[in-house]
C-alpha cells in the first residue's frame, strides 16, 4: 500500500468535481424553463404560445352571424359549402370590428376562373368552362349570382350588385 501515500491532491480534485456538479445543479434550476418536461421532453409553455398566434380567417360562422341573408341565398345553391373567405379572403379584422375595414368585392373574372377554368387535371364532375369561349370578358356576375350560381335563381342586375340583399 506504499503507493497510495500522497492522496490529498486526489481528494482536492474530487472536491472540485463535487463543487462543479453542485454549480451545475443550481444553474440548471435557473436555466431549464419551468414548464419543461410537463408533458414530455419539451417546454409545455410553447403550446400556449403557439395557440396565441393571431387569427386572420374569421371562419364562416362569424360571417353568417351578421350576413344571414347571404348565408340563406348560399345555402340553396351549388356554392352552399364554399366558405365565405374562400372567395372574399381573410377578414378577421372586419369580423372583429366591421367599421374598421370594408371588404373589397373580388373581381369575378379572376376569382371564378381560378376554380372553374377547364383543365383535364380537374375531377370530371366539377363544372368547368373555357373563359374565353364562355363569356368573352363579360364579368361572371352579369349572368350568375356568385352566392347561388345557377342561372335564373337571382341573376342580372341583382347578381351584379352582389346578389340578394
Amino acid at each position: 500500500m506504499s503507493g497510495f501515500k500522497d492522496v490529498s491532491h486526489l481528494f482536492r480534485f474530487a472536491g472540485l468535481f463535487v463543487i462543479a456538479f453542485l454549480v451545475f445543479l443550481v444553474v440548471r434550476v435557473y436555466v431549464v424553463p419551468k414548464s419543461f418536461g410537463e408533458y414530455g421532453h419539451y417546454r409545455a409553455a410553447a403550446i400556449g404560445e403557439i395557440a396565441a398566434h393571431p387569427i386572420k380567417f374569421a371562419g364562416h360562422q362569424a360571417c353568417e352571424s351578421c350576413h344571414s341573408d347571404i348565408a340563406d341565398t348560399k345555402a340553396k345553391g351549388a356554392h352552399a359549402h364554399v366558405n365565405c373567405e374562400a372567395c372574399h379572403g381573410a377578414l378577421a379584422t372586419h369580423a372583429n370590428d366591421p367599421s374598421s375595414m370594408t371588404p373589397v368585392k373580388p373581381d369575378t373574372l379572376v376569382l371564378c376562373a381560378r376554380c372553374h377554368t377547364a383543365s383535364a387535371a380537374k375531377p370530371k364532375g366539377f363544372p368547368q368552362v373555357n373563359p374565353a369561349d364562355h363569356m368573352g370578358g363579360v364579368p361572371c356576375q352579369t349572368c350568375h349570382n356568385p352566392h347561388s350560381p345557377a342561372i335564373g335563381s337571382d341573376t342580372g342586375k341583382g347578381a351584379a350588385a352582389g346578389g340578394t340583399k
Binding site: F57, N83, A86, F126
Partner: peptide
C-alpha cells in the same frame, strides 16, 4: 378555439 384550419376554411370543394 373551435375553428377549422385556414386551409380547410378556404378550400372551396
Amino acid at each position: 378555439k373551435g375553428l377549422t384550419t385556414a386551409c380547410c376554411e378556404a378550400c372551396p370543394t
